[in-house]
Design a protein around this nucleic acid. Sequence first.
DNA 1: TCTAATCTTGACGTAAACGTCAGAGTTAGA
DNA 2: TCTAACTCTGACGTTTACGTCAAGATTAGA
Lengths: 174, 174
Amino acid sequence: MVAPHVGDKVGLEAKSEGVSERYFLIGEAAERTGLTQRTIRYYEELGLLSPPSRTQGDFRLFSEGDLDRLKEIGRLKHLLGFSLAEIRKIVEGEEVLGQLRSEYRATGDTARRLALLDNATKLTDSQLELIEAKVSQMEELRTELVARRLRYAEKRKELEQALVTAPNQTETTT
Amino acid sequence: MVAPHVGDKVGLEAKSEGVSERYFLIGEAAERTGLTQRTIRYYEELGLLSPPSRTQGDFRLFSEGDLDRLKEIGRLKHLLGFSLAEIRKIVEGEEVLGQLRSEYRATGDTARRLALLDNATKLTDSQLELIEAKVSQMEELRTELVARRLRYAEKRKELEQALVTAPNQTETTT
DNA sequence: TCTAATCTTGACGTAAACGTCAGAGTTAGA
DNA sequence: TCTAACTCTGACGTTTACGTCAAGATTAGA
């Protein structure tokens, strides 16, 4: 409950321009992502996360980008039910995208840029396909449930009507 | 490859009215559901499946309803990423629904019927909520990807425009 | 009746995805 | 400088969700 002695705001200026970026130790990273420290280390070990920077004492320093990545992995896993193997594929895709981006910025050749852009587009499309397949299957299941609910609602109306028309259906023998 | 000696069409007439229902041994059940025999037995062991009927020699006989159930479990698991524990909850819900249905048919009391209907509706609603939560989160992710794709498309237009305006951007030194 | 294909119930093995120590080092405030 | 809070890397344990093998019983056709 007591505030950690290791400052939560790790004083590191990453950008040379003086744009200070916040870094987080693994404890706060865990809190902010909803994952455990063990899980975060495990994900790094699996290569789902590019190894974060370190202090000179070898403490991991997570950037906000790292946290975003971790949160995304969490969503892919718990929400969408992807296995870590599948997630690695997706994440590797992201990595390739990043590389494409830097090469993109590096080249002045417009034609080359176009080609890189096409690559990135294809990659994103394939990721999109993955998601859409799941979404549509889920919609299917949802539709079934909605239909069931509708049947109940109709039945309910019928019954309410019956109650008004013949309030004492149980005692018809009277 | 050779046709099994144990007939694939198990000759059992379930309904007394002569409406013959097909039953399947576990081998064909596995083929038809895409699950393995081991998995099917495991699901039964976990109580995800009401124990199927048996031959007098204790071979499992799966009805088409059983197969549907198994397929649903497969979808819930692999598509939506539910754990078997979660699936059990959902499936237990289905079971309760079934019981409600029979009690529903048994009673002539309209008020009682209304109450049962309300119960069933609530159950379905909670299942629906589960699904919808997942769907909406997936939509969110999808939206992100679509946005990215859009950015690429725009960038692409720009670049194509540039190619027309100044075709040899690389060789500006000429 | 014999037999090949199929089924049965254990029982043990395994991969994935972490949980949980242990022992040692690091950090920053008092 | 001392110390509480935090982190590090192994290393082993655990749960889930099955795979796999064994030994024996069942089934239906020849």
